[in-house]
């Protein structure tokens, strides 16, 4: 990579270094990996999964707390993981278990200048936008929500394993007032999407989720509709100004992506209103 304005070669990353870094992160609980694998399966044994998840008391308690929050409108009615499977379905329980585990994995991370709350608010915004786009396009809205929630996993890898690199990216972005992807390419020589993809591979995520995380900016994955859903959901979350970041910036979107989803204007306007009406309750539920 040619040295460019304001970026030194000091913080360049390569695949091998990133893999070494992510190998230091704790593994996700086996039951969460098993739950995630069901994203690519036609059928899953919900009773067996509920029983396995119930054995992890700390994780079960977190799932039940969120399941009973105002976002799901089930206050006090979900008393067990088996209840949660019935009320929220496998997709809902899977999302909650995964969100709780990942948030635990990175809870001890300290990176100067990296605002975790803002990070998760953006991810929740993208998840809600992706879910609503998927509904409008008659795609799997549960998988779209999960992919949206995890699309920026690579930023957490940076904050946790390479904090000095992330500080350099943030400084470059502030100086150049450019999109994150551009700052990452200039400073690291790779994007957070690639970094997130490497962690998804290390954690043995299902192929569809791995591809969605890796290709949420370049649309090179096999599932074009999901890739486009994430690209547009990301732009919408920025455009709706959800994260609370004063320096919020809408990333460029391609014509191909916009045309792939091809929704009428009235549907987009309705979607904005739905996302805004659900957003604060979702944050209250999912952010501890």
């Amino acid at each position: 990579m040619a040295e460019t304005e304001g970026a030194s070669r000091e913080f360049l990353l390569d695949r091998e270094t990133v893999l070494k870094g992510v190998s230091t992160l704790p593994s996700l609980p086996a039951v969460v990996i098993e739950l995630l694998q069901t994203m690519d399966q036609e059928e899953a044994d919900m009773h067996l999964l509920a029983e396995k998840l119930s054995r992890d008391q700390a994780l079960s308690a977190k799932v039940l707390r969120v399941a009973n929050s105002s976002f799901y409108g089930m206050s006090g009615k979900v008393n067990s993981i088996a209840d949660a499977m019935v009320v929220l379905g496998l997709r809902g329980v899977r999302t909650l278990a995964m969100a709780a585990s990942i948030s635990d994995t990175f809870s001890a991370t300290r990176c100067p200048g990296f605002d975790f709350r803002m990070f998760w608010r953006h991810s929740i915004g993208v998840a809600l936008c992706a879910k609503e786009i998927a509904r409008q396009c008659r795609q799997n809205d549960g998988n779209a929500f999960t992919a949206g929630l995890l699309h920026d996993l690579g930023r957490l890898v940076l904050a946790s394993c390479f904090p000095q690199h992330l500080v350099a990216v943030m400084a470059y972005r502030e100086r150049m007032d450019c999109p994150w992807e551009e700052a990452e390419q200039q400073v690291l020589g790779m994007s957070h999407a690639e970094l997130g993809g490497l962690l998804a591979m290390h954690w043995n995520f299902p192929a569809s989720l791995h591809a969605a995380i890796t290709h949420h900016h370049d649309m090179a994955g096999d599932d074009k509709v999901l890739s486009c859903t994430l690209v547009i959901a990301d732009a919408l979350a920025h455009a709706l100004d959800l994260s609370g970041d004063e320096n919020e910036m809408v990333s460029p979107i391609t014509e191909v992506c916009w045309q792939t989803l091809s929704l009428p204007d009235e549907n987009w306007l309705a979607l904005f209103a739905i996302v805004e009406s659900q957003f604060e309750a979702a944050c209250e539920s999912l952010l501890v």
């Binding site: 732009a235 919408l236 455009a239 910036m249 809408v250 979107i253 916009w258 204007d265 904005f272």
Partner: peptide, 22 residues
């Protein structure tokens, strides 16, 4: 300000118009 880097292609401009309307 939010759309300062969104580019001037038709898709980006369409989204900006929708946001203005919203």
């Amino acid at each position: 300000y939010l759309f300062r880097s969104a580019g001037d292609n038709a898709a980006g401009q369409h989204l900006l118009r929708l946001m203005r309307r919203y």
